[in-house]
Design a protein around this nucleic acid. Structure first.
Length: 424
RNA sequence: GGAGACGUCGCAUAGUCUGGUCUAGUGCGCCGCCCUGCUAAGGCGGUAGGGGAGCAAUCCCCUCGAGGGUUCAAAUCCCUCCGUCUCCGCCA
């Protein structure tokens, strides 16, 4: 939810933001108009309501004929009040619905344009030259099957396409990655959390996932609950409706959860292996910060992600996502993409969004300021590890003999194992 | 799954039966001031959130778990939902 008062004060900034996203800028004027009408209707209702209340007080004290007469007046008033209230609340709903359509205001410096208009901020590490090494590149599924680590056939048998089993060393590898991520989070001062994966509509809507991406989300109609696509949803809802004390710095969490995605719009994309699946695990960072600290905190989260990528020794690049490719809630987003040797392209492994006050406004998360008043906080999120990392790990560390080298940072989580060897 | 009790402005509690000076009282906590060698005690005052109008002082509206309803008028009566607790059943 955008800041209506800010939109009223400076609509041009919002129009510019809409243009950068390739979204409809006239929506701003629709909201402006509805908001003006809403306030007008509200003032009319409130004036009439005040009259009704003061008259009501007289009724309580009056006796006999005077009372009868007052009752007649106040009875007529009641009908007017009811009508004005209905009008005001209808306009309030329409204004809010329109305001909900406007995605978050993009930050200065975010590249304009769509999916392909990202800016590459830097490259870290160098992809291996497999040809020079004499290694015939195999993709993660071929490697994973040889290691008896990934079983997509039985995943499909049990649950359908885009499901899989991680077996043996595959299961251990995922646990190793996620445990390493959790340890990293704890060392960095984040509070580890294991979160619900079924949430109420309010939590889902509050994080902005029921807008244009509603088709991506699993819904259980019998219980009106949603399966989360990320623990961000639960962690954002965690402090919903609360007034926080951020005087000792931001509140930083790391949520471990299963994630569920329908992948409704991605038929035919990444159908092989476990790159794009319906269910996976993730350790997600989530931060509540003061609005003026949000950009610094965003850099901090990005730094944690990069440290994690360094730990597993993956070559990657960092991109600054273009406005049109931002989620509804995000004002800026940095992705880290690891090199995928089998396809010779970059694969998103982490994504960190600065949602400024957009999510917190919907969810009613505020802080108590020095002067005793309250104001909306900023929220940020970022990936620390997911099941998908296994893909990049297997491919980048594969060796000529079909084995896979375990990066040193991960060895303590695999009982010191240095090499994953194919099962004969 | 069944039966019952409960949900009030940070915390605790009054108010609900019997609708109207409830414009939600009181205690604790917190903040300011006074008193006072210091501290404690005591005294006085202030202490929820959201929204609207206004240059401002200020005024008004909404919120007593949430949403509806009845009524001239709802914390109070009725309905639905959510949550907490107790007991029973069922399952671990």
């Amino acid at each position: 939810m955008i800041d209506l008062r800010a939109l009223r004060d400076d609509p041009e900034t919002f129009r510019a933001s809409q243009r950068a996203r390739g979204a409809d800028e006239h929506l701003v004027d629709t909201v402006l108009d509805l908001d003006a009408r809403r306030r007008e209707a509200l003032a009319a209702f409130e004036a009439k309501r005040a009259e009704q209340k003061s008259l009501g007080r007289l009724v309580a004290q009056a006796q006999g004929e005077e009372k009868t007469e007052l009752l007649a007046r106040t009875k007529a008033l009641a009908a007017e009040v009811k009508a004005l209230e209905a009008e005001a609340s209808e306009l309030a709903q329409r204004a809010e619905a329109a305001a909900f359509e406007i995605p978050n205001l993009v930050l200065d410096g975010v590249p304009a344009g769509g999916e392909d208009d990202y800016a590459v901020l830097r490259h870290v590490g160098t992809p291996r030259d497999f040809a020079a090494e004499g290694v015939e590149v195999r993709d993660h599924l071929a490697i994973g099957e040889a290691l008896r680590a990934i079983d997509t056939e039985r995943g499909a048998k049990v649950s359908g396409s885009r499901f899989y089993f991680l077996t043996g060393i595959g299961a251990r590898l995922e646990l190793a990655l996620l445990n390493a991520a959790m340890d990293k989070a704890v060392a960095a001062g984040l509070t580890p959390m294991i979160t619900p994966t079924l949430v109420k509509p309010e939590a889902m809507a509050g994080t902005g996932f029921l807008g244009e991406h509603a088709a991506e989300v699993y819904h259980l109609p019998q219980d009106d609950l949603y399966l989360v696509g990320t623990s961000e949803v639960a962690l954002a809802g965690y402090h919903a409706g609360e007034i926080l004390d951020l005087s000792d710095g931001p509140l930083r969490y790391a949520g471990w959860s299963a994630c569920y995605r329908r992948e409704a719009g991605s038929h035919g994309r990444d159908t092989r292996g476990i790159i794009r699946v319906h269910q996976f695990h993730k350790v997600e960072m989530f931060v509540y910060a003061r609005p003026e600290d949000a950009e610094a905190e965003h850099e901090r989260i990005l730094a944690f992600e990069e440290e994690m990528l360094d730990l597993v020794e993956l070559p990657y690049r960092v991109i600054d996502t273009a406005a049109g490719d931002l989620g509804t809630s995000a004002a800026r987003k940095f992705d880290c993409e690891a090199w995928l040797p089998s396809q010779e392209r970059w694969l998103e492994l982490t994504s960190t969004s600065n949602c400024t006050t957009f999510q917190a406004r919907r969810l009613g998360v505020r802080e108590r300021t020095e002067d005793g008043s309250t104001r909306i906080v900023a929220t940020l999120n970022g990936t620390l590890a997911t099941t998908r990392w296994i893909v990049a790990l297997l491919e980048n560390h594969q060796q000529a003999d079909g084995s896979v080298r375990v990066p040193e940072g991960l060895r303590p989580y695999l009982g010191g194992l240095e090499v994953l060897t194919p099962v004969a």
